[in-house]
């Protein structure tokens, strides 16, 4: 257990290392989710708009 604590402690640099990784994760996951949702929304709009013969 001590080994784990000291690992997360990162020699006293925990306050810099973990936020860096957290913000990278947050931004990359967030951008992916925004992009995917925007694609879904566009697909749904297209479905409501186009009569069946227009589908490709």
């Amino acid at each position: 257990m001590d080994a784990l604590t000291s690992y997360f402690y990162m020699d006293g640099y925990a306050g810099f290392i973990w936020p860096a990784y957290a913000i990278v994760t947050a931004v990359l996951v967030g951008l992916w989710m925004i992009s995917r949702r925007s694609l879904r929304d566009a697909e749904r709009t297209l479905d409501t708009l186009s009569p069946p013969e227009d589908r490709q």
Partner: peptide, 10 residues
């Protein structure tokens, strides 16, 4: 020291 680990994302 350990701060070099930030390099892997920076």
């Amino acid at each position: 020291g350990e701060t070099v680990r930030i390099m892997y994302v920076h």
